[in-house]
């Protein structure tokens, strides 16, 4: 298997993915590939032939792609194409949905996220998530950020930890004088940055963002996007967005999902996965071209 096998598999799924399945052991190959790869291309997630079903309906069809460290990976596509399902599969937030079933493998740094021995609480400790609607706890600003570290045994230097998280979320200057006040008194954009601060306070490895700016006004959106550029130096970010311009602005790589007919069902399918510039300027699939030029979606 070549050093770029994963990348190719992502771009030319499903034929290449099928070949990989036939020829190689993706799990065993994962370690080798990481050794060969240059540091900038360190792989965090290897998603191998993942399909998601809710009961008898399939939400996501056979998806294979790699997500790289210290990059922003955007997931775009029309409504109902499985973007959020895909994102939530990366930290097992779908587990509580009745009849959720995942086939294939999601490897996080070589470890199978869905292996029986994998603890999903531990998974989420390392792979944090920010939701579409800001959801601060009904506690003070300080306690929102400090709550998870306290519960995870990171009590030493808690004040510094809270300050650091708020600084990294570009919120510190706005709230440093009212840390004891309720988080519910913040504006929507501030609340969302607080949620980001809360997520990074436990120093996760990956941050998943599910349309983090879609409930915010343009100014707050701009501040969140700017934040993503700085956060990627420290974390690996995966962002689902409705907004193609947003993907073009913040993402290093972009995955385009769309609904595809599989048998009689319409199933969310990965159409194209490429560096953002390539995907937006020279898409290889006509459906991608139609979507990014506004022909549908």
């Amino acid at each position: 298997m070549s050093a770029h096998g994963g990348e190719l598999a992502g771009e030319r799924a499903p034929e290449v993915a099928a070949r990989l399945r036939l020829h190689g052991q993706p799990v065993a190959g994962a370690g080798d590939r990481r050794l060969d790869a240059e540091p900038a291309r360190e792989t965090v997630f290897e998603i191998r032939d993942v399909a998601v079903h809710y009961g008898s309906s399939q939400a996501l069809g056979w998806t294979t792609l790699d997500i790289h460290r210290h990059e922003v990976t955007a997931v775009i596509g029309p409504s109902g194409c499985g973007k959020s399902t895909f994102l939530r599969s990366l930290n097992r937030m779908n587990d509580t949905i009745p009849n959720f079933r995942l086939e294939g493998e999601v490897l996080y740094r070589g470890h199978d996220l869905y292996a029986p021995a994998t603890n999903r609480v531990e998974v989420r400790r390392r792979i944090g998530m920010v939701f579409q609607k800001p959801n601060p706890f009904p506690k003070s600003i300080y306690d929102n950020v400090a709550w998870a570290p306290r519960n995870l045994g990171m009590r030493a230097g808690l004040d510094e930890r809270v300050e650091r998280a708020l600084r990294h979320a570009a919120l510190w200057d706005e709230v440093k004088d009212r840390l004891k006040q309720s988080a519910l008194g913040l504006s929507g954009g501030q609340q969302q940055r607080l949620c980001i601060a809360r997520a990074i306070a436990i120093e996760p490895d990956v941050l998943l963002l599910d349309e983090p700016a879609s409930a915010l006004d343009p100014i707050a959106t701009a501040s969140i996007e700017e934040l993503m550029h700085t956060l990627k130096h420290r974390y690996t970010l995966v962002i689902v967005t409705h907004n193609m311009q947003q993907a073009a602005r913040v993402a290093d790589r972009t995955a385009f999902f769309a609904l595809d007919l599989s048998g009689s069902q319409r199933v969310g399918t990965l159409i194209e996965y490429a560096p953002t510039r390539t995907l937006f300027t020279n898409p290889s699939d006509p459906r991608t071209r139609d979507y990014i030029t506004g022909q549908f979606g």
Partner: peptide, 26 residues
Amino acid sequence: PPSFRQAADALGVERWRTVIGVILPA
């Protein structure tokens, strides 16, 4: 609100701690 549970889940905190620290106080 279920969003409180979801937020706590996404932080990798066990459910019983969420119950004591977030849900019951709310």
